[in-house]
Design a protein around this nucleic acid. Sequence first.
RNA 1: GCGCCCGUAGCUCAGUUGGAUAGAGCAUCGGCCUUCUAAGCCGAGGGUCGCAGGUUCGAUUCCUGCCGGGCGCGCCA
Length: 593
Amino acid sequence: MKSDLIHDLVVAALSSALSRAKDSGELDLSTLPALTVDLPKREEWGDLSSNVAMLVAPKVRRPPLEVATVLASILKDEGQDLFDRVDVAPPGFLNFTIHPSRWGDTLKIIEALGSAFGSSQIGKGQRVLVEYVSANPTGPLHVGHGRGAALGHAASNLLQATGYSVQREYYINDAGRQLKLLGASVLARYQEYHGLPFTFPDDGYHGTYIHAVAEAMAQELGATLLDVNPEEAEEQSSAFACMQLLERIRQDLRVFGVEFDEWYSETSLLGAGHLTKALEYLKEKDLVFQKDDAWWFRSSQFQDEKDRVVAKQDGTYTYLASDIAYHRDKLHRGFDSLINIWGADHHGYVPRMQAAVQAFGYRKEQFRVVLVQMVNLLRAGKKVEMSKRAGEFVTLREVVDEVGADAAKFFFLMRRSDSHLDFDLELAKRQSADNPVYYVQYAHARIASLFRVAESRGIQVPSLQDVDLSFVTTQDELRLIKQLSCYPGIIEASAASLEPHRVTFYLQELAAQLHTYYNKHRILPSHDPGVVGESQEDGGGGFSASLDDPSAQEHRETVTPELTAARLALMRQVQTVIRNGLAVLGVSAPEHM
RNA sequence: GCGCCCGUAGCUCAGUUGGAUAGAGCAUCGGCCUUCUAAGCCGAGGGUCGCAGGUUCGAUUCCUGCCGGGCGCGCCA
């Protein structure tokens, strides 16, 4: 059963009007279309609108306006308790004006649900595994990883809020060539540290952090690695470096406020024999075959453009092989669907992983990939140059230390993931309205502050049942309430499309409306009532200028205790929705700024 | 060469299964604090939705071609 939000009530009314029209023969419908209601672009067009008549028109072979008129007349009869007006507008829109008293219900729902407002059970408890970051433990996280982390975190929150059971997972590539290279690089620096001759590996890892790891290794292990044979030394070096760097990654993510349920190690995957099992299964199905002394996965059978090598001529496995095994394991663990957050430079791998999922007998749709585009770091409008090859990049940690975890997360989530992101460090630090993070957080803190002042004057924020809601039904209040009522729909759409930026945009809009309202209307009685209506001595330019400003005049409006109570209660609900939205993004909702 | 993503105001970007007169922030300009946080508000200007076709009652949205930018096309990860 759905909530009694206005949107749902209108959809229900529309749907019953459609079936009435069908039953009475007024509209010759076989199937009912999917119904949606939206906020119209202009307030003159009412509170909510529907384009259903235009969707239905071709099916019943009648002009949209006619269909709309039929529906409108039914709705006027049946929905008298809900609608003030039902209008028909060309080319066939139905525009609804809701009875003002009904909007109070929205506030009551928010108060009753609190932090659960916006949540739903659409996911029906289905199990989803979200894998994100999964950076190789061969260096610290950089800003690109940060974007993936923020996105994976927010997407997981969204899925959880819509009724999915979510597992957050980080896959550790702690086996294979890259790790060997890491070990060799660190070992070389370790030898250098001990004043010995060394050969730095081709394609080795540069960057100062390698020196730091080597030094730590020297301090912890002394010179012991100099005595063992080279292979053994490299192995130990790999293990040490991996552990160190992974610990740093964990720490950076903790400071960033991004958590995981499971850190899944490739070594453990291999140790459990999952790779051989996966390949055996595929061989049996004739989906893996031998050619040119290598083993190939027949991914082209599943819309990949060509087959892919899983075991090389030298007998070692490719990265793809263990990834296939990993995803098979995920599915075998009983997850209904898998979501991966990947850097956009990996987009070429999507078809082959989809192929793998299907090769194991699962549906293609059970595997979704969200691609995250590059982050351009700017400082006061100028691009910060980074060279990954030379090991010169700005780390996530540096950014978080500089601008804070909240600002960093919010900025990472301000754009659609598949568009490039310009991240201006100076802007993220700025404490003004230019900075969207502060703007939204300030709205929350401002309400909190208002409540503190109220309390200091002995005024409690009332529960809605003690409030006469007819006091909050003017245009300015309705505008706010309407925005609040959209929140569950935003969460739902945002979760379905895995696009947290919609929440970010929504919050900026809600905060703007709050600030506007706050500036225009008084909530508490004036501190000094004597000022109201009193004329000033210096009736010169300054004063008349403020009279010309409509907002300044409104500022002097007198408020009764009933009005104060109603507005405080409204503010409480606005605060709840801002807090809920920020929570989805993983951003804190401060009481003070 | 092939594939994927992007192209919307000076800049950065939203735009929900195709809908009404295309939006926001920044920047620019002009106003607003004696009262609840000015970390805020109000107002103004600013557009060939990359270009050309097509689909239809209707296209920023879908299709085709082209132009421009990014990325990918390893028995690397």
